[in-house]
Computed example of a mutant assay.
Amino acid sequence: MDTTDHAAVHDVDAASLAAWPLPQPEAEGDKELRGHVLVLGGSREMPGAVILAATAALRAGAGKLTIATGASVAQLVALAMPEARVIGLTENETDGFHLDALDSLDPLADKVDAVLVGPGMRDAPCTARLVHALLPRLDQAGVGLVLDACAMDVMLHMPHDWPDGKPMRFARPVIMTPHCGEMAHLTGLEKECIVGRPDAPALQAARDWNAVIALKGARTVIAAPDGTLWQHEGAGNVGLAISGSGDVLAGIIAGLLARGAAPEQAACWGVALHARAGDRLAERMGTLGYLAREISLEVPALLEQLGHKNTRQRKDAGPATRRVPGDEQLGA
């Protein structure tokens, strides 16, 4: 197995998840305490992506949802997501959002806990400009950020006033969810090299970019900026390789982040929940043919099941301090 500097690889399995319980709302808590997610995405040709991601965020336990999408599809999205506040943004001829979207998005920075950008967006340079403009405000407010799909091109498209030769690096850790093809696009490496040996490029990107990288594949690796590396092997099944599946994963991660999970925890748990949901669907429906929209339906029961296991184990063990992955080998 390829690793950078012979870094230990922590398994994301039942034992590691039990040792790393998600933040839980108080029994008497309201929706505000469960976290508010903003999903920014969608386009005329792909309004469904933002719906898939937003649904997944709620299925992961977030309490409130706002969707910002193109004005041309905002009403459609609102009808499909009655649980959400939907904001229509002005679009350009290439389906990107004008920078005047900031007037609508800026006030939300003090109201949301996590932002997901990217599902269903098509104009990568325009999306990158919007992300660059949003970053200082989100950093100021301490809002968690997940970048998916073409929003990850923020690494390649710098603002006009960006200093020559200065590499892109986030001020606060964000979560990025590339598959191997997207990672090759972002890094300039050959896709075949990343597919066969994903550990080193994921770790290098995490360190260089100050990001938690969830590099998706049959063996998904999650790398943190401090050099900690996790792996999830047998990521569900081939049935998860379907249109919209990545939007669902990004939504699950954003929902967990809004609930108060740390970026690396949200990424690891999100990958595991997504894979386990695929396993459940494959057992019930067959390996091929289930839909991305059905993945989210499995998540609440999985959260409940894993939560009960965590509760039982904590009671059996008595009072315990939280173990942070990276201090020891998870799943040992």
Rank of each mutant, 00 (worst) to 15 (best):
311 T>M: 13
32 E>H: 14
151 A>W: 06
80 A>N: 12
320 A>W: 05
162 W>M: 10
188 G>T: 07
11 D>A: 13
197 R>S: 15
244 G>T: 11
175 I>E: 11
110 D>V: 15
327 D>P: 03
103 D>T: 09
175 I>T: 11
251 G>H: 08
300 P>L: 10
49 A>T: 07
200 A>C: 05
228 T>Q: 14
146 V>D: 02
225 P>D: 13
140 Q>E: 15
199 D>W: 14
32 E>M: 08
165 G>A: 06
165 G>D: 06
19 A>I: 00
127 T>L: 02
309 K>S: 04
57 A>L: 00
273 L>E: 11
68 A>P: 00
289 G>H: 11
15 A>F: 08
238 V>H: 02
317 A>T: 10
104 S>A: 13
112 V>G: 11
117 V>C: 02
74 A>I: 12
73 V>R: 03
170 F>I: 05
250 A>W: 11
288 L>S: 11
81 M>L: 13
161 D>S: 14
318 G>L: 11
92 N>I: 04
172 R>L: 10
235 A>E: 03
168 M>V: 15
89 L>Y: 00
114 A>P: 15
114 A>V: 12
112 V>Q: 00
16 S>G: 10
25 P>L: 02
228 T>E: 03
90 T>P: 12
179 H>S: 00
145 L>G: 08
157 H>Y: 15
228 T>L: 04
134 L>G: 09
151 A>T: 13
107 P>T: 09
268 C>M: 12
217 G>Y: 13
177 T>L: 01
248 V>Y: 02
122 R>K: 11
79 L>M: 10
107 P>M: 01
277 A>K: 12
209 W>I: 00
224 A>Q: 06
224 A>D: 10
